[in-house]
């Protein structure tokens, strides 16, 4: 799949400012995740930690296609989604380190974070469980007639869970405004798509419910953006749910504790060289004269500073007070 294909030439094409934002937001996620991996290695982040490195174009392109009020929900590989919605890197990193200043006061951790302000509804630790919930958020939009769309992300692994199809059925039956974004990063934990899925074209997974689907180059932020815009419009017109399969790739293991022995180093290296969403997008922008090489370097410097500040904040913030053990169980 070509990553450097020309951007769609239509009114949907992003202008220079948006292109820069794409690059910035993708790079922020990458640097944030690299830092998170580092802090994990230092023992400052515990438990499970699933990094989003390699998949950045998906959330950044989708987010740009949304309007204020649209909701986002995903599973546990969620740091990128949170940053894309505009959540503060400090609060996200502090949650990873289990501090009181984290988005969930340190009680949720990497896999369970929420931001009502940014319409980010988690952060869910059970594979596939976010899919009916996202469908329910879409139901609330239809009920309230607020015109909002819910983007429900899940992976190629979750796509084999039964509750996904229960959700598809109700979403189409009731014409709910939900975009199902299947992030196909080729591996359900350590099991490749070929070894786990009878139908490996996930855009077809809604066929028996009459839900249209499309395969998208998830390594190309502009392709994602274009597909996201079309999908959002489809939902807003009251036509019901739509599926976007994002063909993407994760560079790191499933979680920090995964040595990823199920694939070769060469396979990862090839994707990094030929399809990396950030490298290629930067190169495309400089080729087209949208930005200069120095501009990208300056951006990287700023982003490293943001991430370092977040990391410091996350290490300096206090742990939650012991009394917090018993708060927030019930309202």
């Amino acid at each position: 799949m070509a990553s450097a294909k020309p951007a769609p030439q239509s009114e949907q094409s992003p202008g220079a400012d948006l292109q820069k934002k794409f690059y910035h937001d993708m790079l922020l996620i990458r640097r944030f995740e690299e830092k998170a991996g580092q802090l994990y290695g230092m023992g400052l982040i515990g438990g499970f930690c699933h990094l989003y490195i390699g998949q950045e174009a998906v959330v950044v392109g989708m987010q740009a296609a949304l309007k204020k009020g649209d909701q986002i929900i995903t599973a546990y590989r969620d740091h990128g989604h949170m940053l894309a919605t505009g959540m503060d890197p400090k609060g996200v990193m502090a949650e990873l380190t289990g501090r009181s200043t984290g988005y969930s006061k340190g009680k949720g951790g990497s896999m369970h974070m929420f931001s009502v302000e940014q319409n980010f509804y988690g952060g869910h630790g059970i594979v596939g469980a976010q899919v009916p919930i996202g469908t329910g958020l879409a139901f609330s939009n239809k009920y309230k007639k607020n015109g909002a769309v819910c983007v429900t992300y899940f992976g190629d692994g979750a796509a084999n869970q039964g509750q996904v199809y229960e959700s598809f059925n109700m979403a189409e039956l009731w014409k709910l405004p939900v975009i199902y974004v299947i992030e196909n990063n080729q591996y359900a934990m350590g099991t490749s798509v070929e070894r786990s899925s009878a139908e490996t074209d996930f855009s077809k997974r809604g066929a028996s419910f009459n839900i249209p689907g499309e395969q998208v180059d998830g390594m190309d932020v502009e392709a994602v953006y274009a597909a996201g815009q079309k999908a959002a419009q489809y939902c807003r017109e009251g036509k019901g749910p739509i599926i976007l399969e994002m063909k993407t790739y994760r560079y790191r293991g499933h979680s920090m504790s995964d040595p990823a022995k199920y694939r070769t180093r060469e396979e990862v290296q090839e994707v990094r060289e030929k399809r990396d969403p950030i490298e290629h997008y930067g190169a495309r922008m400089t080729e087209h004269g949208t930005v200069k090489e120095e501009d990208l370097k300056a951006m990287d410097k700023d982003i490293r500073s943001i991430v370092n500040t977040a990391a410091e904040f996350a290490q300096e913030s206090p742990e939650p007070a012991a009394e917090e053990l018993y708060t927030d169980v019930l309202a």
Partner: peptide, 21 residues
């Protein structure tokens, strides 16, 4: 009326509650 789909509609209900209903 829901389809016979307990796992699905229980989760859909949770999402609707998150969504303010």
């Amino acid at each position: 009326d829901t389809p016979i789909t307990e796992h699905g509609f229980a989760g859909l209900g949770v999402g609707a509650a998150f969504g303010g209903l």
